[in-house]
């Protein structure tokens, strides 16, 4: 007891100014932009810390990456030097991966698959989610886990031909939106264009190209958003627009609009 009290007394006597204060350095804008550019280039593959130019923990690019993660713009899988960073709107989800595994495994009739076989179907980012996806597929009965010695093999419920009536599968949980849905593609593309150009009102033709969408689909979506006040169409300057810009114009209130600002 005495020792403990002595230890406590020693702690209290330490002068406040001798405590280390962790300084929080601001995010360097140049580093932030560099990290974003690298992540965009990497797209769905993701980028390692080395590929992002992170040399050591807490350097400018590392801080920039942390800030992006904090803001919800990027996701990091894994940790340490093997971590993989990817833009949020390109990041895979457990549910999407589970669907993919389910679909592919169902094609492998009368085959049992090891984890490595299914890992071969995954991108580097998806592989981080593989175990969780497999657990959810086993839980839902889409995969059957088989033990062989120390290893686990999986068989698809369809190809194994379970004897007897299968209990009805629980209804799958509602799926969260996945990155390839139009809204996310458009918003992701919009964010990239704003980041590159510096202006909130982007050219609709550029948005279409960046999102990789058909004109009709994009125009319909933009018009719907405009009606709801989530997109503000701008007429721009028709005389300065090239053919591509004019063709991508969205007509609203009887006039063609060359630009749009999304409310996000």
């Amino acid at each position: 007891m005495r020792k403990g009290k002595a230890r406590q007394a020693k702690k209290k006597s330490r002068a406040p100014e001798r405590r280390k204060v962790r300084r929080v350095s601001p995010v360097n804008e140049e580093a932030r932009v560099a990290v974003l550019v690298a992540l965009r280039r990497a797209a769905g593959r993701g980028a390692s810390l080395a590929q992002l130019g992170v040399r050591r923990n807490d350097d400018a690019r590392h801080r920039a990456l942390r800030a992006l993660v904090g803001a919800g713009d990027a996701v990091v899988f894994g940790d340490g030097r093997d971590a993989l960073a990817i833009l949020a709107d390109r990041a895979p989800s457990k549910e999407a991966l589970a669907k993919k595994i389910d679909a592919r495994a169902s094609l492998k009739r009368a085959a049992v698959l090891g984890r490595e076989d299914m890992a071969a179907w995954c991108s580097a980012a998806e592989e981080y989610l593989l175990d969780a996806a497999l657990r959810s597929l086993v839980k839902s009965g889409r995969l059957v886990a088989l033990r062989r010695g120390g290893s686990v093999l999986y068989g698809h419920a369809d190809s194994l031909g379970a004897k007897g009536p299968m209990p009805p599968a629980a209804p799958p949980p509602p799926e969260p939106p996945v990155a390839h849905e139009p809204r996310f593609r458009i918003i992701g593309a919009y964010r990239r264009l704003v980041e590159q150009g510096g202006f909130s009102d982007v050219v609709i033709a550029d948005l279409r190209r960046e999102a990789g969408m058909a004109q009709e689909e994009l125009a319909a979506w933009l018009l719907e958003q405009s009606r709801m006040g989530r997109a503000h169409l701008g007429r721009g300057d028709w005389s300065l627009a090239d053919d591509a810009a004019r063709q991508a114009a969205v007509t609203a209130a009887g006039e063609p609009h060359l630009r749009v600002r999304l409310v996000i």
Binding site: G197, G198, F199, S200, D201, G236, D237, L240, L258, R259
Partner: peptide, 29 residues
């Protein structure tokens, strides 16, 4: 106005001159 600025003026400004403008710009509603 945005289109004349981005299509006619900005391309003719040297990079060093463009950096003299604060970002983000003030955008009207």
């Amino acid at each position: 106005n945005l289109d004349p600025w981005t299509r006619l003026i900005l391309p003719r400004l040297q990079l060093a001159y463009r950096d003299r403008f604060a970002t983000p710009p003030v955008e009207l509603d």
